[in-house]
Each structure stands twice: as C-alpha cells, then as structure tokens.
Design a protein around this nucleic acid. Sequence first.
DNA 1: TTGTATGCGTTATCAA
DNA 2: TTGATAACGCATACAA
Lengths: 335, 335
Amino acid sequence: MPKKTTLADVAERAGVSPSTVSRIINGTARVTQQTRQTVQEAIVALSYQPNVSAKGLVQGKTLTVGVVTHDLGCPYFGPALQGLQEALQGTEYMPIFLDAHWDKHLEERAIQRLLGRVDGLMVMGGLLGETRLQQIARQIPLIALGRSIPEFEHQCVQVDQYHSTRQLMDHLFSLGHQRIVHISGPQGHVDGQERLRAYQDAMLNEGLNADPDWVYTGDFQEATGLKAVQHWHEQHVQYTALFAANDQMALGARLALHELGIQVPHQVSLVGFDDTVAAAFAVPPLTTIRQPMHELGRRAGRALLQLMEGREVRLARVMPELMVRASTGPVPKAP
Amino acid sequence: MPKKTTLADVAERAGVSPSTVSRIINGTARVTQQTRQTVQEAIVALSYQPNVSAKGLVQGKTLTVGVVTHDLGCPYFGPALQGLQEALQGTEYMPIFLDAHWDKHLEERAIQRLLGRVDGLMVMGGLLGETRLQQIARQIPLIALGRSIPEFEHQCVQVDQYHSTRQLMDHLFSLGHQRIVHISGPQGHVDGQERLRAYQDAMLNEGLNADPDWVYTGDFQEATGLKAVQHWHEQHVQYTALFAANDQMALGARLALHELGIQVPHQVSLVGFDDTVAAAFAVPPLTTIRQPMHELGRRAGRALLQLMEGREVRLARVMPELMVRASTGPVPKAP
DNA sequence: TTGTATGCGTTATCAA
DNA sequence: TTGATAACGCATACAA
C-alpha cells in the first residue's frame, strides 16, 4: 500500500510551502503564474487527492449530504435522486442515501446516524411527525420533499396533492363515473392522506355517498393493488373506476383486473398517481398525475446547497399535471 | 448554532480524560464499571456524536463506500442498492451513490471523484474497460456486480448470463418458436453482449439461420423496446417470439405490440431478463430470467467489508432462475 | 506574494 | 485501569 500523497509532498516537489499549495487548490489567494504552474504540475505528477477527512475536520464540514427515502428501489424516488445528484454536480458535496423501509423507527434511526455525519439532510416523503422534523430542521439544514413542515414551509418542495387529485376526480366525473373506488396510501403518509381527503371531498361534492367499503387502505406497493381488487371482487363491490393513490398500486390492480377478465378501460377505468415510467408503458398506458420528480429533486438539491451556505431559501409549491392516457374511458352503458 | 460537543466535553463532565471516553466508546480497553457508567451518562446527557472527520483522519479511513451505478432510478439496481445497505447495517460504513448515466466518461469521472474519498468501491454494471478496472482494483478495495475483471474474478459478483439465456431460448424452442427476434443491450455492456452471444449460439445450434435483421441494438430503456417493434413492423419482419435483453425493453415492446393489435402470447411470445417488479406485474406477466439482485447486493456489500478489513474474498458465480409466466405460449398454428 | 505556526477532534503510544 | 501527549492532513491567522 503506497502511502498517500499529501499537501506536504506536493509542496516539497514544487519547492513551495504547503499553505501555498492549499491556496492554489482552493483559489483562496492570488499567486504568481509561475508558482501556480509549478504546483499544478506537481499535483498532476503525484496525482494528489486532498484528504476529505482532514479538510472536513478543519472546516467543520463533512462535505456530504444525507438523503432519507422510503425505499431506494422505488420508481417514484429514482428520478428525484438523480435530480439531487445533478444539483450536487460541480460542488464538493456527495450524497449518502439511506432508506427507511417505510418504517418510522428505521427512519428515525437513519436520521440519527446521519446527523453529525452530514452537512445537510434531505427527507423524501417520510413518516416522521412534524414536531420531530421541526427539531431536526433547527439542528441542521433540512429540505423536505413531499412534506410540509410547519414554520419551515419554505424549506419544503411541495406538490399540490389535493387539487391535482380533485382534477383527476373531475376527469373521471366528466366521463360519467360515479362508482369510484380508491386504494389509499398508508396511514402515516401525508401525501397519501391528502389524496384520500381529496377523493372523499370530490365524491361528497358530487353528491355521491362514498361507501366506506370503497376505500381500501394500501401501502403503495404493487401487491396491495392486486389484493384490493380481489377484495372488492369477493365482496361483490361494483365500480366503474378505480383510483389508486400511486401508480405502483394501480399497476397491481391492473393485473388483478386482467386476471378477472375485466377490461380496462371498457369495464373499469383506472387511474394512478406519480407518473412513473412503468405507468407510461403500461398496457393500456395509465392515466395519472405527473409529479416532475427529477426537476423537484434538482430543485431540492439546489435549495439544500443554499441552506448549507447559510442563505435563505423560498421554495414554491408545484402544481402537477394530469396525464390522460388510455386507461380511462367513458363509463360503460349497460351494467 | 450551538457549538458541537466533543470528546473533551464528555470527558470533562464525567471527570475523566478524553482517552478514557474514547476507549469506552470503542471498547478498546477495559474500564471499571463505575467510570463506564458515568461516561455513558455524560454521553447521553450531552447527546454526544463522534466527529467522523476527526476519526477518519486519525484512522486513515473515511468510513464511506462508493457505489457507481448506471442509473439510480433503474428498477434493476434498486434492490441491489438495498441489499448493499443491509450489508452495511450495523457497521460504521455508509454508502455514497453516484450514477454514470450510461456514459463511460461520466463513470470514469465519478470513480475519480470517489477515489480518495471512500474506503471501498462498488461498481454495478459499468462500461469501463477491464484494464481500467484492474487498475482501480489494485488501488482500492473493489467489488464489481455484474462484471468480470480478469485477475480479480473473486471480487466479482457474477450472474451467469450465457447459460441462463440459453435456458430461456430453450424454453422458446420447446414451445415451437423458430422466428425469434432479439433486442440487445448497448455495445459496451458486457452482460448485454453475453446475452446476445447466447441468443446467436442458440439459434445457430438449432439450425436456424439468424437473420441479422432479427437483432435490434438497444440501450436497456423502455422506449427502445417500443422503437424496435415499430422498426420490425415497418420492415415487415415476421416473428413469433421476441427476446429483449432486459425487462424494461420487453415492456416497451409489449406496449408497441399492444398498439399494433398484436396479442401476447397468442401471436407473439415475449421474454425479458432481470425479473424486475414491473415484469411480474405486467399484463400478461412477463416470462424472464430472475437475477436475485437484492441478495447479490447484500453479498457484494459483505464482500466489500471483508476486503476493506484486508481479508480475502472468494465470490461464486450465481445461476439465475427462469421464471415462466404468461407472456410466452406455443407458437401460433396458422400464420 | 509567500511561509510559519496553530488547531480542528480523534485515536494510539507511552507512562504512570 | 487511567492520563498526558503526539500525530493525522489540512486551512487559516499572522508574520515576513
């Protein structure tokens, strides 16, 4: 194992002091063209790599940011992670990702481990309570994606869940649907609850008595969508449209409908939420709400950088877009 | 910003020396029950968090590992990332993920940035040449997932691409298929090339002249699967089975077939590779090769830990499993 | 414009 | 069993 080259090595080779090398690397002070040249060459010749630990220690930073997701493999967060990474491009920061497996305690533990190890934190979704998030926000630069933290709203990249869901419901109403069932998100999930509330309000507003049986509590996984449809089938629940709180469950439901020989959209219209890649390539392509996660991730990343520089951020709420595709159609005539 | 509590603070409060505190935290030496008790309390009371930079500096480690993927949002790698994370659970290591956007130069740059910043490296897939990987492996503990590095085979988590593809082809042959087209992976991708080679060998072995038009060069993205089918349609290429080099392209192809009114599997049988979640929930569910990515990620993570401890690793090749689902059926009788 | 000296928080070596 | 002390590699205040 060859001993790592340090600033001192470079300095020696270039015939200058370590501080000069440091200054050249960081652009902290002006130096003569001459010395700069010599030092640059020495850096290349020795293929010098600064030691992050030392740098971090002296600057009181770690040059990393922490990202807590529900599930690294989740198609919903993927683009957001990429966007974040793009934002970090060109900076000295690198992201550490940890997932919480949809478990509140694991989430807490992940954050606990991350604190004191990163300079900034990003929470994607998340089940943690608002008070806890407030505490964290006071402790460390924090950006939340898909959550609203009271007193820290400007540090939250928010997508309007409620109104876009209402828009989705209006789309179904306009097609004549009245018997609309819903697969919701898990209990603690804020966005999921918003979508549920919008569904309920929309039904109420349309004068449709929302049968409690029409809501099946899900967990955002494909398998649950499948189970929900089977459940309604066994209970002989009749419906002409199914709104799943995310695309993954919608696609699970879609498979179940297929297996039951129920045609989409001729017998049942199907809608999801998120617009994951799989939704666009489903058969038939899924009508859904497009959350521009890539862009949001990038925005969140930039905001986090600002926050870590001590600057203020003021993030605006995003209105997502309704993507009408082939999975929705007019309500069937004869039952 | 309250100044961070340090070892010294804890020591002062507990009335002992910093070294004692350090020893207690790391279990480096035996201490009396008495002092241990006092120190533990001080740690909790001050909610002390060790400074990773300082620790890293003195130990010559960074306590992080780097992971380079093609695409963080890719459904194929998600489970592997989770597995890796599980392996790191309970250790002091945390993962930094960087994606290379399927670009060789970005991959090189990502690795460059990671070197000197992490204690170990994991390359998932990747387009980098073997010689470069060898160089890297000599420099830093390296585990490759889905690649074989000459001289470092035992540091590679490998899945047998060739024989499993042959198995897949045999499945199609046994159903009577002869006109089998293939959407391949990108040029530089080793696994993709293996699958292509197996396809060609299988066809040859079956005495079927593999029309060069039957291979469409893809890039592992959904959209390409769609384009391939459109291309063959325009060229009036006739086929009864389509083998896509991964599930994502298979699902893209599946949508294109749907739009052309071609039934799966009644008119065309469809197979993919990887067994992503979306494949299992496709309509109809996709016949494919299951790569146990979660398990492989975990295995790779454990191996990396061993490597960083200076121990040897000896990873065995994995034989993936053929998942026969509803997207494949007997070759249609009349054309 | 450049060099010297100091300290960041921790672990490890050596005494006690 | 414990404490003092010396690194670790870098940035920076201060001196030249």
